[in-house]
């Protein structure tokens, strides 16, 4: 589904160029749950951003179903993201003035769906993450784990092919982290979502079907996991 070819990303920091990614090549299959690991500054977030179409490589290709995402115009890219990508962030990034349902509905505003259809989808997504009884709650009325689950619902409500998650458990306690990861594993196993997740929590990485280690912008080792941790949700 995704083919990265010789992907390089340089940053300019003051007067010096920093190499964030150094000719990374990678293939990701449909249905994979990839855990990207590595120390801070290893380039894992950059790799994720490029795959999600919110950053562009300095050179190389990022092919999504054969289309080079890096070549799309800013406007085309925005539309591409709204169709194919669901985002989950470390800090949840829910809009504080909107209820859980409204937050989940947000990406649907870009579609041509009618209000009733949107409502159905929102309820379905929230039911999937187990928060159907929290429709009208504002983010500040929810716990951290619940907030991240709302964010997950928001990521999948458009039924994207790829879900990208940037440190989804970084701001959660162990129990909530376990819940959230279980939910992601279910999405992967039961609903067939392809997921790319950046994390530096080895326990979270255990839930993936494949682990990838990055260091100083280069791929270190690539381990497929025969038996990922079981989903409990």
């Amino acid at each position: 589904m995704i083919d990265l070819v010789e992907l390089t990303k340089l940053y300019r920091q003051g007067d010096i160029d920093v190499t964030a990614l150094d000719r990374v090549s990678l293939h990701i299959d449909e249905g994979e749950f990839l855990a990207l690991m590595g120390p801070s500054g290893s380039g894992k977030s950059t790799l994720l951003h490029i795959m999600a179409g919110i950053d562009r490589p300095t050179s190389g290709q990022c092919l999504f179903r054969g289309v080079d995402v890096a070549q799309l115009s800013e406007t085309a890219l925005a539309e591409w993201r709204s169709r194919h990508i669901g985002f989950i962030f470390q800090t949840f990034n829910l809009i504080p003035v909107m209820t859980a349902a409204e937050n989940v509905e947000l990406p649907l505003l870009l579609t041509r769906l009618r209000a009733s259809e949107r409502r159905e989808r929102v309820e379905f997504a929230l039911e999937l993450v187990g928060l159907k009884d929290r429709l009208k709650h504002l983010p500040r009325q929810l716990s951290g784990g619940q907030e991240q689950r709302v964010a997950i619902a928001r990521a999948i409500v458009t039924d994207p092919e790829l879900v990208v998650a940037d440190e989804p458990t970084g701001n959660l306690d162990a129990h909530s982290a376990h819940e959230v990861m279980g939910l992601l594993a279910t999405l992967n196993q039961t609903h067939g979502k392809t997921i790319v997740m950046v994390t530096h929590d080895p326990r979270a990485a255990q839930y993936g079907t494949r682990q990838l280690h990055l260091e100083k912008g280069e791929l270190q080792h690539d381990t497929a996991q025969a038996s990922p941790a079981e989903a409990e949700a």
Binding site: T75, W80, N93
Partner: peptide, 15 residues
């Protein structure tokens, strides 16, 4: 700005 970035990530157009 942060919220605007999130909306952009979802695919909302800059214009």
């Amino acid at each position: 700005f942060r919220e605007i970035a999130i909306l952009k990530a979802f695919g909302f157009r800059s214009s």
